[in-house]
Amino acid sequence: MNGPLLEVSDLSVVYRTYEGTVAAVNGLGFSLHRGRTLGLVGESGAGKTTTALSIMGLVPSPPGVVESGRIIFDGQDLLRLPEREMKRIRGNRISMIFQDPMTSLNPVLTVGLQISEALAAHQDLSEAEAERRAAEMLERVQIPAARYREYPHEFSGGMRQRVVIAMALACNPSLIIADEPTTALDVTIQAQVLELMKSLKEEFATSMIMITHDLGVVGEVCDNVAVMYAGRIVETGSLEQVFSDALHPYTRGLFRCIPDIEEELSVIRPIEGLMPEPLDLPSGCAFHPRCPRCMEICRTRVPEAIERDGHGVMCHLFSEGGGGDHA
């Protein structure tokens, strides 16, 4: 098949809480081609993890409800699949790497068992065979197979994350969703883990969605980038397009937040204001209260997505009659 491996369109997810309805994801859409890595970038609360959990069919319910949308994975709409079918895909064809390796492994089970059970669930293997393959996976992430019967507390944070990676790769999935896989790690360990993920991704010919708020990580591993703000993708394009020619004021703001060590007088210029309260999103473009180039129309109308050469942006500056420029 030549179409995209994953195509998400018009996805909306809300959380119904006692305080009101939280719109976590609002009509989001993107696609991912085979063998590619998409970086999903945004601040905390932008809806990145909810998007990932929607693809996995794991949005906590209650309070989460997927209100609309389609998630076409390899020709099948995951949102229409019965739970039984979804179980066959989860951990097998799509798997997920979670943020905090300190809490995402079960403390009372050996790491070996936690890897082999994914294999046992999806492949018709004898116990011994599952164990052998799991031990092999440990070696693949540079942990000696002799440590198969050890418990998570006997490993360091970086090693635990490698165990999680081994778990995710065990069934050789077509798609890996990595949700801030390096955020909880030391900077030096981050680099190692990223390097490992990159090489394993190549080796297993897997596609990947890399969720992160770290533009450095995106530059390191991604082919395409989608920038999320308040549950919408505000800018999308190839790594080059977004990094060298950011259009959306929010994306530009993000880049200004990175200190430049080569510049002598480096002043970090954070984006003014805070992420809007998801219970009460601003009218029009959700970014308008913080936008340095806010116009009248931004306050009232949600901008349309505009695309040029695969570089998409959701901003009135670039719609017809807008004052957008590439400067």
């Binding site: 996995m56 989860r90 995402s104 079960n106 669930a121 999806h122």
Partner: peptide, 17 residues
Amino acid sequence: RQDYVRTARAKGISDRL
């Protein structure tokens, strides 16, 4: 509500397990 339960679900193992 623990993360490791979510991890277990993400592996696609049965609810009983």
